[in-house]
């Protein structure tokens, strides 16, 4: 699927600490206002460009069996279709977290009609260091 961005990164901190940073101010956008419950409002702003959406799922680390966590929300700019973002946190050993990020947009329609997308066999984007971490 080409309408999907997927990244995974191993971080030297426990899930609770990673959760604080990724849901806090300054990471998802310059300004972040997230209501951390299903159906909650999600508002963002970066470089003066606002984005808004809603929260789909919140599983804070520490409230789950296994100590992982998950945040799923939708965001978009006015007049454009929203995209879905899912952050998954899994503990890795004692003090590390495997963070997985998926952002997808409803482009499955193009797959549905069976049109080949150009560039799908090209190299994946992003610094190799992030994937190798």
């Amino acid at each position: 699927m080409v309408d999907r961005i997927e990244r995974e990164l191993l971080l030297p901190a426990p899930p609770e600490e990673v959760w604080e940073v990724v849901t806090g101010p300054g990471w998802l956008a310059d300004e972040v206002a997230l209501e951390l419950f299903p159906g909650g409002d999600a508002r963002f702003s970066s470089n003066g460009e606002p984005k808004s959406g809603w929260v789909e799922e919140v599983l804070a680390p520490g409230t789950t069996e296994g100590g992982g966590g998950r945040l799923a929300f939708w965001w978009g700019t006015d007049g454009d279709p929203a995209t879905r973002v899912e952050l998954t946190l899994k503990p890795d050993g004692d003090a590390a977290t495997r963070l997985r990020v998926v952002e997808a947009r409803p482009l499955e329609l193009l797959d549905l009609v069976g049109i080949p997308l150009p560039g799908t066999s090209g190299p994946s984007y992003g610094p190799a260091m992030l994937m190798a971490a």
Binding site: L11, A13, W27, V101, P118, G119, Y125, G126, P127
Partner: peptide, 26 residues
């Protein structure tokens, strides 16, 4: 349809930047 490719590149780069900053912070 090349829009899909530029979307991947643009939004993917944003995530790479976020993840790099997260790795630095932690």
């Amino acid at each position: 349809l090349s829009d899909a490719v530029s979307w991947i590149a643009e939004v993917g780069a944003q995530w790479d930047a976020r993840l790099a900053s997260l790795a630095r912070t932690l």
